[in-house]
Amino acid sequence: MLMIIGSGVLKGLGVTLKTFLETYPWGRAMLRVLGIAKTDGLVTIQYPDEKQEHSERFRYFPFLVYDGTPDNLRCVACRICEQECPPQCIHIVVAKDEQGRPLKANGRTLPKQFDIDISICMSCRICVDVCPFDAIEMDNQYELSGYDRAGEMYFTKEKLLKSADYFKSIKPTEAAVVDQRLAAKKKKETPG
């Protein structure tokens, strides 16, 4: 019975000592000499110095896609995303002329204002799923700190605009699918 009680205590001490040794090169060498199986030791990623590799599908806040130049938006201000957004963080105003008719550029209506309050956004990706024009996509930037919630965390159209090439660079697989879909749509439109 003495052995049973003592062995439990010593076993626990052994586990922590092994973990302690595993985190040092000399400790790992010692464990190797003794023939004790070891793990990689320190698993902490020292964040500001080194960054974790994210998967391609990692997403954070949405952004607006443009083709070529920033005035060639894919968005037509249909306001579907605004209505579908669960926390209602998207705010869209359609660009209109003096008579109240929607303005058109490149044959499409366009938003005068497109704001996302990213302090409210919950990164659910519903806006991307409902967008019929693939005009909004998820970004993978996560270092978005600011001093002021109302000002800096309220992203306007200018801040949200990013090129289709950028989208291709951060999410090649998803961008390929989107491009394919857009190309198919274009082909269907052209003959008709």
């Binding site: 922590t16 000592l17 973990t19 302690f20 595993e22 985190t23 040092y24 030791g41 320190l42 698993v43 902490t44 020292q46």
Partner: peptide
């Protein structure tokens, strides 16, 4: 330091 190393931290 020691506690951190025992918990796989720095």
């Amino acid at each position: 330091k020691v506690i951190a190393r025992m918990q796989n931290r720095f």
